[in-house]
Design a protein around this nucleic acid. Sequence first.
DNA 1: TCTCCCGACGTTAGCGCTAACATTCAGCGT
DNA 2: ACGCTGAATGTTAGCGCTAACGTCGGGAGA
Lengths: 388, 388
Amino acid sequence: MGSSPTGPTLLAKSGKSPVSWQQGTGDFLLADSWDLGKRLFVVMRRVAQNNTMTKSNARLPRLEDVAERAGVSHQTVSRVINNHPNVSKATRERVEAAIAELGYRRNTAARSLVTRRSQTIGVLGSELSQYGPANTLLGVEQAARDAGYFVSIAALRSVSREAIFDAVRHFMDQSVDGIVVIVPHSETLLALAELNPGAPVVVVGSLGNESVSSAMVDQKRGAELAVGHLVEQGHRRIGHIAGPQDWIDAVARAEGWSDTLRAAGLDDDLLMEGDWSAGSGYEIGRKLAAERAATAIFVGNDQMALGLLRAFNEAGVRVPDDVSVVGFDDQPESGYFIPPLTTVRQDFEELGRRCMDLMLTAMRDGEGGSVTVVEPELVVRGSTSAPA
Amino acid sequence: MGSSPTGPTLLAKSGKSPVSWQQGTGDFLLADSWDLGKRLFVVMRRVAQNNTMTKSNARLPRLEDVAERAGVSHQTVSRVINNHPNVSKATRERVEAAIAELGYRRNTAARSLVTRRSQTIGVLGSELSQYGPANTLLGVEQAARDAGYFVSIAALRSVSREAIFDAVRHFMDQSVDGIVVIVPHSETLLALAELNPGAPVVVVGSLGNESVSSAMVDQKRGAELAVGHLVEQGHRRIGHIAGPQDWIDAVARAEGWSDTLRAAGLDDDLLMEGDWSAGSGYEIGRKLAAERAATAIFVGNDQMALGLLRAFNEAGVRVPDDVSVVGFDDQPESGYFIPPLTTVRQDFEELGRRCMDLMLTAMRDGEGGSVTVVEPELVVRGSTSAPA
DNA sequence: TCTCCCGACGTTAGCGCTAACATTCAGCGT
DNA sequence: ACGCTGAATGTTAGCGCTAACGTCGGGAGA
């Protein structure tokens, strides 16, 4: 890219942000922000000129151009690019120099056309604005880009067969090399089964099976950690606010809760279902505050726990003195709830990376059905204590 | 797709989730989840077979195949697909039938190769796990997919020139038709200016200028709403916890705060800077609780406000009785803080849609520099009241 | 010395699509 | 009847790349 010595490089090279911020002096703020705006304006104007210039100019260099410059055939250049063995060192270096000089970049479309691979993986997600899915997506993206893949996304507005079909068709149109599914929803898996994506599928968070690989955090184990912690502290009546039961994770967490209680010889009859939202946690919390049946509540995620805390606070139920609360996820905010929330941490980015690892092997070896499990971790904070 | 009548369709067609959930009965849970797993297993096994079958079978149909079946030339089929005018109604119908019968889908790579357009827009984002950016992304994705575009993402791990360069090169390799930048960070704009993406750029949240279009929520106006609300209630000492000042939005909000105070003849000297995190809000909150200089605090986002509330709670500062607090963003959880947070709502999805609108016109008409502004909205809840 | 082999290239033929040009034929005015 | 027009179609030539095969020369082995 034309980085002439007098280009915008100089302006931006200063590195640190140009805004010198001083506490307690609003004046500086205005001046600096204005200055920033002005600088941006100048730089951007130059960009605009650049753009119109290059746009009208010649097209991008191709293999042929590089070949000509290096004095070889285009095929030899191709070999260099693709790291084929039979190229002499001297030629390789000459070609690489030519590539660098011309700023050659290979044309993805042409390559895809002939190789029938798009170097793109599609990520099918829902609830992508939630903490968990969003971070999983980021983990996948990072691993994918590092592996030289493009990441295309399709967010599901609703978890319906139609929406899923539409998204998968979208990916098939793009002829993605693989599909990662971050829709921890059983309906999705069923819909996916009907379609025939024609590309390897890796599911985040499902039970693995022989056709699709899956990467998951051990939800049941997480629930066991949470409930085990409460049991250890001496709680005997431990309720659970579950997520919607068509979510695979919600089912697994409820299972872990139930199993742990039974193993400890306790009743697992205090079960309620929310919809993951703080609002639903609040509604259920109001009922719980009135009933006072449990001395501890294991909540399916941190957001519902937030709603629960709020309801308890309103009703004068003290946490953890009257009731202990454990969440699930460990969002960055959970440590700042009132009181700070004891919760189960899931390493979503690691999950995303593992997911991509599975995808890479699935695409290479064509094998499916492997499962990788990330261990959750209990984070103890102020919302739990021994019962009164 | 081979949806034979005896295929997996039957299994999945039941529509509702198979899990019949009953409050207070852990037994059902286990049984049902097991049942679900079993059903998935059966369906997925069939998928595995399908996959291996079709993978070994013939390749996908092309224009030529459709043409042959419809008794026309491949070019006529192309015309039908691209809605060219000069095709007779009869032929068009015949071709469409053939397309449907063969399940033809056009090859994106081949099309891109000749049209030099990839039908893909790249979204460059950072902090994509945060509420605002995540939802903006969703808005962009929805609008883009509806417009027939693919959405490729690149998340910035750090906001450095190198990372930005890398991401933009990534998009250039993919020859995206446009780049949406959701990095409300001035450094990004400078780095972007150096590079020459060779494709229209739309920035979310910047000041517009002649080379790039931008979609933004009127941050300053939002701050004015928030601070105006506090002033109206009779507060005279109103502090601000700003975001990092290399973020464009943070600067604008601080400006709005400052301007409003000055317009009301009040001092704008109570200014602190956080890093958007609840933790930084908490730290600043501890200092504020000790000083008690202000009767109201306008906080740069809801997460810092959460930390602030927590610090105040710990220190025995009552909200809103002793100090009023206003946030910014209106995350879904903010209504369940203790107390429920008065805050400024930003419609991020609308922002994303508008952003995509700009992109579409920029790609079509090649014009840049337009700006579209989304109005913020004040949401009054329990964290604000008149000073004591 | 001659063959054979193999590394280091070059040449050719598409991948599936669209733009541009070529062709056909009905309908029109003269 | 004649050409002329234009709608409806067909034909041709790539887009930039890679896989497959062709060629060439030099060293090893007989």
